[in-house]
Design a protein around this nucleic acid. Structure first.
Length: 221
DNA sequence: GCCCAGGGGGCTC
DNA sequence: GAGCCCCATGGG
């Protein structure tokens, strides 16, 4: 099925973009920093992650070699502000080990893999779930993979565009059926959904009066 | 004091 | 496959 450029998924994107403007995701200087950030931000506000990343940088440890040799307890101390620091230290180490083993520590080699293949492999790394892996693929690898998060589920369920009990995969497929595989579009769309979720759609009420999506219609489906 | 944040794993049934 | 619990800090 060819995605049409006039369906409600595009309409919502346009509304959000007009309201919030470009979000400039992912806020990281390197791909490695992006990936570490994706792990650290699991169920954690980005503010707390920024401090953790600053600490790793200050230590001069934001390099594959350093992250490989650093002791888990030391890494945990550096990322303390991001919460779940013991688990996340282990998750970072798990990823680094995978990167070393499969790609000799080269992110360029890793990202040269086909997206579907890389997705499956990253999902087998303990501590990398669907949202984290898809973020890495989209924002780190520039692959056209749509990232689904809790806001996406909440907001689009509220608008009747996904079913309440749809799986992650089903929601992702819904978006990718309706949108052209465009990295920049997927990048901005997910970031805009987060912007909306953070601002005014936190409540469980259906559409507050200031919501940029308050007049959205679903008769274009 | 409460609730939540840019989740994921493990366990139970 | 769905429903819990655990991980843990920091900000509102």
């Amino acid at each position: 099925m060819q995605p049409r450029h006039d369906n409600i998924f595009y309409e919502i994107f346009k509304k959000l973009y007009a309201f919030y403007g470009p979000q400039h995701w992912w806020p990281a200087q390197t791909r490695l920093e992006m990936i570490i950030g994706a792990i650290l931000t699991q169920n954690t506000s980005w503010k707390n992650v920024e401090k953790a990343i600053r600490n790793i940088k200050k230590e001069g440890a934001l390099k594959v070699r350093c992250l490989e040799s650093i002791k888990p307890a030391k890494l945990a101390a550096l990322i303390r502000s991001s919460g779940y620091y013991n688990i996340k230290a282990a998750r970072v180490k798990n990823f680094i080990r995978y990167l070393q083993t499969a790609y000799q520590g080269s992110l360029s080699k890793m990202f040269s893999e086909p997206a579907a293949f890389l997705r499956d492999n990253l999902l087998s790394v303990k501590g990398l779930g669907e949202e984290t892996v898809d973020s890495i693929l989209l924002y780190g690898g520039k692959k056209a993979i749509f990232v689904v998060d809790a806001y996406t589920r909440r907001i689009f369920t509220r608008h009747g565009l996904v079913k309440a009990h749809d799986s992650y995969q089903e929601i992702q497929n819904t978006f990718m059926r309706h949108l052209a595989p465009d990295v920049d579009l997927f990048n901005e769309y997910h970031a805009l959904i987060v912007a909306l979720g953070k601002n005014i759609c936190r409540s469980k009420q259906p559409a507050c009066s200031e919501c940029p999506l308050r007049n959205i219609r679903k008769d274009k489906e």
